[in-house]
Amino acid sequence: MQVFSIPKSIKENSRFTFCPGCDHGVAIRLVAETLDKLNLRENTIAVASSGCSVFLYNFLDVDCVESPHGRACAVATGIKRVNKAVGKDKFVFTYQGDGDFASIGLGESLHSALRGENITAICINNTNYGMTGGQMGPTSTMGQVTTTSPMGRNREYHGFPIKTAEHIALCDGTVFSARVALYDYKNIINAKNVIEKAFMAQSKNKGFSFVEILSSCPTNWKLTPKQAHDKIENELIKTYPLGIFKDTTNE
């Protein structure tokens, strides 16, 4: 039997304030556990973004700066570079939603990957703009009903969703790119291992590392938490297959 305690990298007495069944809490906990495991907490600067992911700094007990919407990778670039210039090797990661990373911030994200910035980006993909009430995002799937695609996402009006992890894997500066899910225990364990790999890539100064986390949004999907996880398992992974798309950490 394993007894779980609150990770050191989670603030004392903090309670997740996300909607019931939302995977953000699990994702943040996995990040915190990994920071603990790799002993990174005291050397970390996290970059939060806009949307539900902005609350990162309410839970994580690390130095954290919020970035304007979509600009987290640019902000992280500045932090990593200036610290390097003054001889400090800081661990820098972003925690962003899919709208933040792959829509409004695609330019900053993609160019950070192309430059091979030695940072890690965690992208929570819940296929909609959660905080504003469930609008169609860059990752909303074909046919997905949202408040701005009431007849379902279609090619004529909305075009196609972006497969972020696959795109980032194509960048020469990317050392690690993967997609994970959190709908069951097995996947959660796997996700934690993948986050660790991504963090290790940065610790080894290898370049840009990226983890896309398929996450549930029961509130906006108008499903129960269980139904939401079933949807990820049965439907979403058809559009967004899980796996590691690039890993050159050991090359």
Partner: peptide, 11 residues
Amino acid sequence: NMALGAATSGE
């Protein structure tokens, strides 16, 4: 935004 991030270092 890079400057914004870098500014958190106080440099």
